[in-house]
């Protein structure tokens, strides 16, 4: 059941998307998400859907990976759709009951909202699917490095992020093991009232926390014994360098953004 969590997962590959500089991918994802919030018409949503499909096709990642990523947020999507459906008062009324009414605008906005959330999540998944956690944090660190001048501990943030990402799969695996071990002793995580279920989590949470602290301790010792002292004066083995493909990709996304804004202005 926990294996469904795909956050931070990476699918190894050799596609163009895998080879792009992580900074390019971060910037482009960022541009894409902002563009998503400027979109409001069939043409702009159509374009954005098309772009995501194109990128997903280039990445050669199986479409089912995206659906699995969307599964945990189905509730939020449905909830948003229902809210938008009933609380939009403009447009022609289609039908109504119990004082609630559904209008044409309501349907349109609800559909757009659902698409927007799905694109938002899928695009970030595309980023993590094609980028290793290590290069992702390298990218974040490099992009934020101007903030170092303002004494923001950018390196430390990046390190914390990479450790967190690194340990997500480990902790999931660990939780799975503990769940199995407690199930083998007859623990029941799946049935019972809400309070019983919360109580049933104790045999999982206690060992999980104990082991998380133990791992943190071990990692700290391992880092210190290799003389890790934070970011000051630290150099890196592989410096990130933009290639032609990075500039082309960024150019493409800037064009996309301009296109979406122009469409918004023209009111198409």
């Amino acid at each position: 059941m926990l294996k469904d969590i795909t956050l931070g997962q990476y699918f190894p590959g050799e596609s163009l998307l895998h080879r792009l500089d992580p900074r390019t991918k971060l910037i482009c994802t960022f541009i894409y998400i902002i563009a998503l919030f400027f979109a409001g018409s069939y043409i702009s949503y159509g374009t954005l859907i098309l772009v995501l499909f194109l990128c997903a096709a280039i990445s050669k990642i199986h479409p089912s990976a995206f659906f699995r990523g969307l599964k945990p947020v189905v509730f939020i999507i449905v909830f948003t759709a229902i809210l938008n459906l009933f609380y939009t008062k403009t447009g022609r009324e289609l039908f109504g009951f119990w004082g609630l009414s559904v209008t044409t605008d309501g349907v349109k906005i609800a559909v757009f909202m659902v698409i927007r959330i799905m694109l938002l999540i899928s695009s970030t998944f595309l980023l993590t699917y094609t980028t290793t956690p290590m290069s992702l944090t390298d990218g974040v660190e490099q992009l934020l490095s101007p903030l170092k001048k303002l004494h923001v501990p950018v390196h430390e943030f990046a390190m914390m992020m990479s450790i967190a990402l690194r340990f997500i799969p480990t902790l999931i695996e660990e939780a799975d093991k503990i769940i199995n071990a407690q199930k083998a002793r007859g623990a029941d995580f799946e049935t019972g009232k809400l309070l019983d279920r919360a109580k049933a989590l104790l045999p999982l949470l206690v060992p999980l926390f104990v082991s998380a602290f133990r791992r943190a301790d071990e990692l700290a010792i391992a880092m210190e014994s290799r003389c890790y002292r934070g970011g000051v004066g630290r150099t890196r083995m592989n410096n990130l360098v933009f290639a032609a493909r990075d500039f082309i990709t960024m150019g493409f996304f800037i064009l996309l953004f301009t296109f979406i804004v122009v469409i918004l202005r023209l009111g198409l």
Binding site: G186, P203, V210
Partner: peptide, 23 residues
């Protein structure tokens, strides 16, 4: 399981041993 000591969770050893029979 392997490394089964990672599953211990109760306040006392007695309670932990009793977890299975209690279930």
């Amino acid at each position: 399981f392997q490394y089964p000591e990672h599953q211990l969770f109760e306040e006392t050893l007695y309670k932990d041993l009793a977890f299975g029979p209690r279930n």
